[in-house]
Amino acid sequence: MGKLFAVVVTVITVVSTAIFITHTWWLPVDISAHGHAIDHQLSETMLSSGVLFVLSQLALAVFAWRYGDRKDGRQVKTFPGGATPMVVLAAILVGAEILTLTFVGSKVWAGIYQTPPDPNSLNIDVQAEQFAFYFRYAGADGKFGAVHPELINEANENFFGLDPAHDTTARDDIVVPSLVIPVNRPILLTLRAKDVNHAFYVPELRIQQDFVPGLVIPLHFTATQTGKHEIVCTQLCGLGHYNMRAYVEVLPQAQFDQWLKEKAAQQ
């Protein structure tokens, strides 16, 4: 029975590890300026914790194989050196791993979430609601109109609650259901929630952030490749949560300028 256990554990370990190593299912292409650091941190963690995983499972398998009770009258043996050396070694090894991961990982995290946005960022306001995203560009004046929740009206397509009648800065705001951004230009999103919690997640951009009602949350990144990808909501927001998505389209700067001009003309 011990041998069977050893074989099953070994097979499980080898098959699961092989699928990780061969990247049979893996992260999609990274199109962000910061994403390589995340991918690197993930690979480092995969390597160090993968070694721990394989060694622990194989030790369990080997011991189960070897130390079955064969009724041969042998005496049990204690672990060489007892618990202390093993505990000290484990604490040092895992401690060193944690220290390294924290040191490197904190810099990666801080590089995304704790650094100020580039002053030349393109600012885009994002409103999340059950079950859609809306994106707002400042228009020709470069200023966003103030938001008035009481004026939000889906039927009139006033998704942000703007007051163009009294607020001149709101008149040229461009509101669209898709995020269109220029490539290689820093983007600063300002996240607002109309109703409940939502989240902004683009796997290819390696970025994720909750929308929280009552909070205005900044999020900045730079896309390095053109293309079109899905933005999905990852914070349970109600019955249509699974279907709450939009697209992010990364365009060359000239094409983006053209697009923005066309949208401004339609306002």
């Binding site: 963690t45 369990l60 995290w109």
Partner: peptide, 24 residues
């Protein structure tokens, strides 16, 4: 065995820099 398998993935999720991608 299953505790090891589950514990290992904790190393990933404990790090904010990886949680950015794997969260939710």
């Amino acid at each position: 065995s299953v505790f090891v398998s589950g514990g290992i993935s904790g190393f990933f999720l404990a790090q904010p820099s990886i949680d950015v991608y794997l969260h939710a």
